[in-house]
């Protein structure tokens, strides 16, 4: 993978709030088209790092580039080249499906013609053409999430950030959502994803695990399982996040 193009590069990424060190010298690279799992316990500092990578917050120190753009000076360029979706913020509930797509397309400066063509293509793919003029508020959660993801990559960004995208949905919808992630990745979009579902960590090409503001491990799921001599990512996570915790089946 070392000969692949680097899409995100962080060297000694550090963020301090007063005396509190939220991100402590994070070092990692994310490659083009990769599905990169960004894991950690609650409060480990994931959201802080994601906000920096999205150009929403400045680091205290470190050299960080996203799609080649500098996170200190080129935040507008970064925002144009990324997509973002979280469980909390995605679509406008009081707009229809078509209106939401149009709004996002417009914000990213896409032409009306492009928006119209792509909207039809997207609605067909998601099999929701007949619900084009339905308000988001009346859609099932699973549809909303799939649509929110599609909207996040509508402007064909180089990277998409997904912050706990699958929380609360049923297991079939959760898997359909990962189909969309795989598809985006196979088209060359870099996927940077956080999740609390450890089976989803297995779907990632590489995974980093944060503990108390530091990256404690970073590798493929296979290597991590081998290193910690356990059979699944859940146990890897426990070994790293809470070494004193006794795993049940031991």
């Amino acid at each position: 993978m070392n000969n692949r193009k680097v899409e995100i590069k962080a060297v000694n990424l550090t963020k301090k709030y007063g005396k509190f060190i939220a991100n402590d010298k994070l070092n990692f690279e994310v490659y083009k088209g990769e599905i990169f799992g960004f894991l950690g316990a609650n409060g480990a500092g994931k959201t802080t790092a994601i906000r920096i990578l999205c150009g929403l917050s400045k680091p205290t120190s470190g050299d960080i580039t996203v799609s080649g753009f500098d996170v200190y000076k080129q935040t507008e360029e970064i925002k144009k080249n990324i997509g973002y979706m979280s469980q909390k913020f995605s679509l406008y509930e009081d707009l229809t499906i078509a209106e939401n797509i149009e709004l996002y397309g417009g914000i990213y400066g896409l032409s009306r013609k492009f928006i119209k063509e792509r909207t039809n293509h997207l609605l067909e793919k998601l099999q929701i053409m007949e619900h084009k003029n339905t308000l988001i508020s009346s859609l099932p959660l699973g549809w909303k999430q799939k649509l929110a993801f599609s909207v996040a990559i509508f402007h064909e960004p180089r990277i998409v950030f997904l912050d706990e995208p699958t929380g609360g949905v049923d297991p079939i919808t959760r898997r359909q959502f990962w189909d969309l992630i795989y598809e985006a990745s196979s088209q060359g979009i870099t996927v940077f994803v956080t999740t609390h579902y450890m089976d989803e960590a297995e779907y990632c090409d590489r995974v980093s695990i944060m503990v108390d503001g530091r990256i404690e491990a970073l590798d493929t799921p296979a290597v991590l399982k081998e290193t910690y001599k356990v059979s699944n990512m859940n146990d890897v996570f426990i070994r790293i996040a809470r070494p004193d915790f006794i795993i049940n089946n031991e």
């Binding site: 929380g167 609360g168 609390h196 426990i238 996040a241």
Partner: peptide, 11 residues
């Protein structure tokens, strides 16, 4: 346990 990490869930 919704939105809680895997270790805290077990605890």
């Amino acid at each position: 346990t919704t939105g809680v990490d895997a270790v805290s869930r077990m605890e």
